[in-house]
């Protein structure tokens, strides 16, 4: 069986700068895989290559064995590649119910209906209710997104990605900027994400990485630097030096 997501010698250059240097990575089915690296290691560029926001300069991307390197962002999303954003990308004027409802109906193929009334499909309503509860958004479900506390917006960010029923989910620093008081709720929700979704977590926050991930890849200067289980990476002296060590000094 092919991997949920695989890159082969993926490359990206910005002028003279090599942002992604022949990175090969395998994300197994059901994985809880973290991608870590110091600032400027090229983590976000890597996510943008995977999702098709940026075109690649070389190498291939396989989604469930299918080559998607030439596919657009929209096509990859339709094939089951979901993502969240490091900086919230939400619909400020819409409520969580509307945002999630949009994601669900788009996935079910009802997003282009010009004549149906919103809220008339029971199956969509059920999924909205389920997701709203699962992501602890019940209290704020009918308030405009821009009025939500930051932690709730972070949860909505993930709920939107999951509403598309992805096979592979890329979480780009889901805990970034979340205040301590709202952190527990977020971590619990992450831990409860369904096991059949393969997850690649891009993260800075080591506590979250060690509690969430089962496998870790370290990226340094756009290059695949090390990979292994959590214990292996924690014990790796080289990783300590380039990443964990420097992080403590920062």
């Amino acid at each position: 069986m092919s991997a949920a997501l695989q890159t082969i010698n993926l490359e990206k250059r910005f002028g003279g700068l090599v942002a992604t240097n022949k990175v090969s990575l395998v994300l197994e089915h059901g994985a809880r895989h973290a991608l870590i690296g110091p600032n400027g290691a090229g983590k976000t560029t890597f996510v943008n290559l995977l999702t098709g926001v940026l075109p690649t300069d070389g190498g291939r991307i396989l989604l469930d064995g299918e080559d998607v390197t030439a596919r657009s962002q929209i096509q990859r999303a339709r094939l089951g590649l979901g993502r969240t954003f490091q900086i919230n990308q939400l619909f400020a004027a819409m409520t969580p119910v509307e945002s999630i409802g949009l994601a669900v109906s788009e996935r079910m193929g009802g997003g282009g209906d010009i004549w149906r009334r919103l809220g008339s499909r029971r199956d969509i309503l059920s999924e909205i209710a389920e997701l709203v509860e699962r992501f602890r958004l019940t209290d704020v479900m009918d308030q405009p997104t821009r009025a939500l506390p930051y932690g709730k917006q972070r949860l909505l960010e993930i709920a939107l990605a999951l509403a598309g029923n992805p096979r592979v989910l890329l979480l780009d620093e889901p805990a970034a900027g979340v205040p301590e008081a709202e952190r527990g709720e977020l971590l619990e929700t992450l831990a409860e994400l369904p096991r059949d979704v393969s997850i690649l977590l891009i993260e800075h926050d080591m506590d979250l990485v060690f509690s969430f991930a089962e496998r870790i890849t370290v990226l340094v200067n756009g290059t695949h630097f090390a990979e292994g289980s959590v214990a292996e990476i924690m014990a790796d002296a080289r990783v300590q030096e380039v990443y964990l060590g420097s992080d403590e000094h920062a």
């Binding site: 096509q75 999303a77 990308q89 939400l90 400020a92 788009e106």
Partner: peptide, 18 residues
């Protein structure tokens, strides 16, 4: 609704497969 979403945030709309 999808039009309003595109107006609010086209990047997100694309990443949702719209």
């Amino acid at each position: 609704l999808s039009l309003r979403a595109i107006r609010d945030n086209a990047l997100r709309a694309r990443s949702m497969g719209i």
